[in-house]
């Protein structure tokens, strides 16, 4: 299985199609409800900003799913990072750098544990990461009383500042997306991820240390989840132990990755599709708001669209899925 074939057959068309459909939906809804202000530069950047938190998490999720694993611990990790960042900063700008380093260090440890359990322990990734997620969530909820705090005002620039009319969060998402795409498409590590996900036994026979690749992919996923948590902390000023879980970031990041054409078995897909999936979710949210659809119906439609969006390309699959 060659990488170029993957890109030609799966990567771009799904991503492009999804992106065009999402933008089309947004424009049609904006025009039909008379909310043409949404179509301005501000409206567009506002729409894109809805993508940031989920987008960051989903980029990391793409790495683990490509390698044939999955990460359910991201939601708890996001909460942990947001709480830890605000606790360490306590509004003091001098603590920004140490706090960020501490948070990313925590993510690296969690990613390492996840990866070690999956790659070396032979534990099913769903169970391993569900378990670590539960552990983090429990510790966080039990100790939250002692972990109050708010982030530094200067840190909130990450969420609210901008340059040349482009908000910083968008720049963050764009640069990390480019970096992720570069790593997957142009580096040896990326090639190994596709190889291990596509055919683990073949990759091992070809001399790749598959366990290390899986472990690294888990660390990447946790670090991206950490970036998402830091962004949320900057935007909300302080973290709570439930922002990750209430945002359904675990299941939604998996959903957008799969919607974007990355297959759960691993080895096929990429960053472009994932971003298109995130864009779809963002435009849906924005469109539902413009149409004034109530919160519960919104959830129903979301459920239908998740299934339909995956069915569109899954239905062509030969053989059976479970």
């Amino acid at each position: 299985m060659s990488q170029s074939a993957v890109k030609l057959n799966v990567g771009m068309p799904v991503a492009l199609l999804l992106a065009l459909m999402s933008i089309g939906l947004f424009v049609v809804v904006a025009l039909s409800t008379g909310e043409t202000a949404q179509l301005s530069w501000q409206g567009a950047t506002g729409l894109l900003q809805r993508m940031v938190a989920l987008g960051l998490v989903a980029l990391g999720q793409t790495f683990v799913i490509l390698v044939g694993s999955i990460d359910l611990s991201v939601a708890a990790l996001i909460s942990a990072v947001a709480v830890l960042a605000s606790h360490l900063m306590q509004g003091d700008p001098a603590m920004i750098v140490p706090a960020v380093i501490a948070c990313l260090g925590l993510c690296a440890i969690v990613g390492f544990v996840n990866g070690a359990l999956v790659a070396y322990g032979g534990i099913n990734p769903l169970i391993a990461t569900l378990g670590t997620g539960l552990i983090i969530q429990g510790v966080l909820a039990a100790s939250f009383g002692a972990l109050q705090g708010t982030v530094a005002r200067e840190f909130q620039i990450l969420a609210y500042g901008g340059v040349l009319g482009i908000p910083y969060p968008l720049l963050l998402l764009a640069s990390l997306s480019l970096a992720a795409a570069f790593v997957l498409d142009r580096t040896l590590f990326g090639a190994r991820i596709y190889a291990v996900g596509g055919n683990p036994d073949g990759a091992r026979l070809a001399g790749i240390r598959t366990e290390r690749v899986t472990l690294s992919a888990h660390m990447v996923a946790s670090l991206f989840a950490g970036a998402g948590g830091l962004y949320l902390a900057a935007r909300l000023q302080s973290g709570t132990p439930w922002i990750g879980r209430d945002g359904l970031y675990d299941l939604e990041s998996i959903a957008v990755t799969v919607i974007g054409g990355t297959i759960l078995a691993g080895g096929k897909g990429g960053v472009a599709g994932t971003l298109a999936g995130v864009l779809l979710f963002a435009t849906l949210d924005a469109s539902f708001n413009m149409l004034g659809i109530d919160a519960f119906l919104k959830q129903v439609l979301r459920g239908v669209i998740v299934i339909a969006a995956v069915a569109v390309h899954a239905v062509r699959a030969k053989g059976h899925v479970a």
Binding site: I254, A255, A314, A317
Partner: peptide, 9 residues
């Protein structure tokens, strides 16, 4: 029949 993985369905 639509071949959507059960975790997503």
């Amino acid at each position: 029949f639509l071949k959507v993985p059960s975790i997503i369905t």
